[in-house]
Design a protein around this nucleic acid. Structure first.
Length: 584
RNA sequence: CGGGGCGUAGCGCAGCCUGGUAGCGCGUUCGGUUCGGGACCGAAAGGUCGGAGGUUCGAAUCCUCUCGCCCCGACCA
């Protein structure tokens, strides 16, 4: 490609609307342009990168038996009504009507469509397993599109689905996908962590997220510094030292605590208790995942621990949880936040005809002689035994892991916590869709069973964002070699000097013949402008053809290290080729 | 959806408070000098001031409505 003819609209100044690095650089370097909130046009340079990423994805999918489909983005409502997700997806689904008034939607994902193909065509265990995938545009009316290409309303996704006759088959398919994903992100030059994730109310027994570390990420993950343990904060656990309690009184004792509202207040109040000797009592309202009924929940934690709301929701099988309003709390327990406790809470709630669920964090197991609110304003109880006096309905992991705590998986490691963005997610779906949509096969012994499915996604644009987030400097993008828009840029420093131009042209041809993707900067611009632009768009290698050609030399410049070296014209092609193929 | 901010030339912004013929920088075009890290001089083109309605002799500026975008929060397979 000749730069003079190629469309690379670089911007000298930062676009006002771009906040995060990847957004800013992709815009400035001419890879994308915004059309609307969460809707982007991908320009030629950006499309080259996307196509290279897709190619890697395709190769690795095919390597584990994946067969590529191309499914519609426009779906009739019926199929979504069958799986029950026409309602579940709510406002996130783009909906429209055709000329006859029939409900339609734009696909957010393709479980339904693939399942419908499977149920019509797959009848026997002999046809399984199947691994199907596509690279397709997805539409999601996100409440808040943001951060450039990170949260889009229209985006390209590789979605794969596996179909197996039983759980064991699914486990194997899942493992195949997992290893394919590793290869994909390794090849793309993205550093990632595989974390255990909450599969939410959508069902599915197990899911792994592939998370790329970046401050622009939307999730927090906890990662062990010495072993390979990693978890999304909504799932991560840690080992914490146990607290030894002295034996307390035989029954809780109430005592007045005027003005005490917080855990902190009580630690300094005469006759109070240290935070780890208190029971923190939080009131939530949960929405049941199946019946959609709302009910109150008491979440109990150690005083110095923080609740993680997703964990609470998961422990209840709830589709949503929210903190209760103060009026609701008073109605339920007869006291305001600051004086709440689990002792007798169920009875108080029953008096107002509410059924209350009490969930306690695992760290409260066996604890006694603790202090907590008395459900009476300005009063607390001491000498409370959690099992003896509160009797929680459920024990669960509710607390938010903190940086520096001990790894739950190894002996010596501690956890680091940082932000990351989700670039891939693999799920064991099980039989959820097969059952609701009637996709069954006959087993060896003639039994009809639902197909066991897995679902696996990768956001293509997110590969671009993650790569830029992780690999850039003050001058611009530094593309990983495997997905760079070009392998090398040949910069002709002065197009008015024939000798330089001729040498550049010859080199351009030679490199192309060697099978490389080459960009020839043949623009009538000053050398400085060309260097700045080349740095900005992030081509891994630059060959500068300048005055030294009269000595038979050009300059080889490494974008990542900024090292340059004089190389003889006869050996450049070999050097460039070697470097371009050297992977990361 | 709640809170905040912003829509003025291709891009980045000023002008608005206190109404009176729309400006700056970058970019673009032409001429010249320059030519290895975003050159310089000179000339020029380019704007229904997001849209609609209103107040006024007169609206980018004041008022009402509306559309769009960004950020924070909530939300999120």
């Amino acid at each position: 490609m000749r730069w003079s003819q190629y469309f690379i609209p670089t911007l000298r100044e930062d676009p006002a609307d771009a906040e995060v690095v990847s957004h800013r650089l992709l815009l400035r370097a001419g890879f994308v342009r915004q059309l609307g909130a969460g809707i982007y046009s991908i320009l030629p340079l950006g499309w080259r990168v996307a196509r290279r990423a897709e190619r890697i994805v395709r190769e690795e999918m095919e390597a584990v038996g994946g067969q590529e489909f191309f499914l519609p983005a426009l779906h009739p409502a019926e199929i979504w009504k069958e799986s029950g997700r026409w309602e579940v997806m709510g406002e996130t689904m783009f909906r429209l009507r055709d000329r006859k008034g029939a409900d339609m939607c734009l696909g957010m994902t393709h479980e339904e469509i693939f399942t419908s193909i499977a149920r019509h065509e797959i009848r026997s265990y002999k046809q399984l397993p199947q691994v199907w995938f596509q690279i397709q545009t997805k539409f999601r009316d996100e409440e808040r599109p943001k951060s450039g290409l990170m949260r889009l309303r229209q985006f390209i996704m590789k979605d794969a689905y596996t179909f197996d006759v039983d759980r064991a088959g699914l486990d194997k398919s899942f493992e195949n996908q997992r290893s394919a994903y590793k290869k994909i992100f390794d090849r793309c030059g993205i550093k990632y962590h595989i974390v255990e994730a909450s599969s939410g109310a959508m069902g599915g027994s197990e899911s792994n997220e592939f998370m790329a570390r970046t401050s622009a990420g939307e999730d927090f993950i906890a990662v062990c510094e010495s072993c390979d343990y990693a978890g999304n904060l909504e799932k991560a656990t840690s080992k914490i030292p146990a607290v030894e309690d002295e034996a307390g009184p035989d029954a809780p004792e109430e005592f007045p605590t005027p003005g005490v509202r917080t855990i902190e207040d009580l630690t300094t109040f005469p006759g109070g208790a240290a935070a780890e000797r208190q029971v923190k009592t939080l009131v939530y309202v949960a929405t049941d995942g199946k019946t959609q009924e709302q009910y109150p929940v008491l979440a109990l934690l150690r005083g110095d621990h923080q609740l993680h709301e997703v964990k609470l929701g998961d422990s209840l099988g709830a589709s949503a949880v929210r903190p209760a309003q103060n009026e609701e709390i008073v109605e339920l327990l007869g006291a305001s936040a600051g004086s709440l406790g689990g002792v007798g809470a169920r009875d108080k709630a029953a008096a107002s005809k509410k059924s209350l669920r009490v969930v306690a964090d695992n760290s409260l197991k066996g604890r006694r002689n603790m202090t907590t609110g008395a459900n009476k304003d300005d009063h607390h109880l001491r000498g409370v035994g959690v099992e003896r006096d509160i009797k929680p309905d459920t024990w669960a992991d509710l607390r938010t892991v903190q940086k520096g705590e001990a790894c739950p998986n190894c002996e010596s490691g501690t956890l680091d916590i940082f932000k990351a963005m989700e670039i891939g997610h693999i799920f064991k779906l099980g039989t959820k869709y097969a059952e609701s949509m009637g996709a069954t096969v006959l087993t060896k012994d003639g039994k009809e069973v639902p197909i066991v499915m897995g679902s696996y996604g990768i956001g293509i644009e997110r590969i671009l964002s993650a790569a830029v987030e992780q690999s850039h400097d003050a001058d611009g993008i530094v593309w990983p070699k495997a997905i760079a828009p070009f392998d090398v840029v040949v910069t002709v420093t002065n197009v008015k000097q024939q000798e330089i131009v001729d040498a550049g042209e010859r080199l351009y041809e030679e490199l192309r013949r060697a099978g490389l993707e080459v960009l020839l900067d043949d623009r009538d611009e000053r050398a400085g402008v060309k260097f700045k632009d080349a740095d900005l768009i992030g081509i891994p290698l630059r060959v500068t053809v300048g005055k030294k050609v009269s000595d038979g030399k050009v300059e080889l410049f490494d974008r990542a290290t900024k090292q340059s070296e004089d190389v003889g014209l006869d050996e450049v092609a070999g050097r460039v080729q070697g470097s371009a193929l050297s992977g990361l």
